[in-house]
């Protein structure tokens, strides 16, 4: 896909090693603004690793070596002097397993804003309500904001985690198989939510579920053994894949 003005993340010649093992090989990809980009591929193909590279969560793992560049709004995120905290505020992450903190629902949502220096009570109240509404969970939790978040169901916890990510007003949301631990009803709620959110945010979602990719994404990237095999409009890719390997994967011949 051509790089254009509308792309918010632009990845060039990205390679990543865990120690001696190369997990990503020469990835080039441009992610357009206000769209949903699905990353698909069999387990261990590097899609989660790639996702974590986009907000530098791989920094937490020792022995990771990265070459190439990732440009976010035209600036290299690996350049020296980049404020990682600010980068992660603008590029939020939702994880595979819902991971609310063991504190109240309110404090969970307020965690991010507080981290970035917002102390004003009224303002925090506002952010909490807005974020919970944004994640379509406000009506379910508005009467128990002070209750422990671990008391929520799995699907609610995941929407809470999305709300928590929204609370710091990011531009991009990275989702790492956000529905793989959820039941079908919760899954469809999250999918619906993702489609609403793309009006305001850019979403990159890793998924194992190809139907999910078809249902919600605008573009799809197919990863295999650390390589980006094919990247393009979702309808096109699922109807006329150009690469034989893509075809084999999406028709279920392996994976």
């Amino acid at each position: 896909m051509e790089a254009n003005e509308k792309s918010i993340l632009s990845v060039k010649e990205l390679c990543l090693w865990y120690g001696n093992h190369q997990a990503l090989k020469n990835i080039n990809i441009d992610i357009p603004k206000n769209s949903i980009t699905a990353l698909i591929g069999p387990s261990g193909c590097g899609k989660s690793t790639f996702l974590k590279t986009l907000d530098r969560m791989n920094d937490l793992i020792p022995d990771v070596k990265i070459t190439g560049s990732v440009e976010y709004k035209g600036e290299d995120i690996f350049a020296p002097g980049v404020d990682v905290s600010e980068l992660r505020r603008q590029i939020g992450m939702v994880f595979q397993k819902p991971n609310p903190f063991p504190m109240s629902i309110y404090d969970n949502i307020a965690y991010g804003p507080r981290t970035h220096g917002i102390r004003n009570r009224a303002k925090l109240d506002d952010i909490v309500e807005k974020s919970l509404r944004g994640a379509a969970i406000w009506d379910e939790v508005k009467d128990r904001l002070r209750k422990n978040a671990l008391g929520l169901s799995g699907g609610q916890q995941q929407r809470l985690c999305i709300a928590r990510a929204l609370a710091v007003e990011p531009d991009v949301l990275l989702m790492d198989e956000p529905t793989s631990a959820l039941d079908p009803i919760s899954t469809s709620k999250i999918e619906e939510l993702a489609m609403q959110l793309k009006e305001q945010y850019t979403i990159v979602i890793v998924t194992h579920n190809m139907q999910q990719a078809v249902r919600i994404s605008d573009n799809t990237a197919f990863f295999l053994l650390g390589e980006l095999v094919e990247y393009g409009k979702t309808e096109e890719m699922f109807s006329q894949p150009t690469d034989k390997r893509t075809e084999d994967y999406i028709t279920g011949r392996f994976g």
């Binding site: 980068l87 903190f101 063991p102 504190m103 981290t115």
Partner: peptide, 27 residues
């Protein structure tokens, strides 16, 4: 203390010490 708590906090842009003080130590 589950690694996922640390990831969640780092993912929101929290610094190391803040993660330890607010999420790890209480746990």
């Amino acid at each position: 203390v589950p690694q996922s708590y640390r990831e969640g906090a780092f993912g929101l842009g929290a610094g190391k010490w803040r993660v330890i003080r607010t999420v790890v130590l209480p746990g």
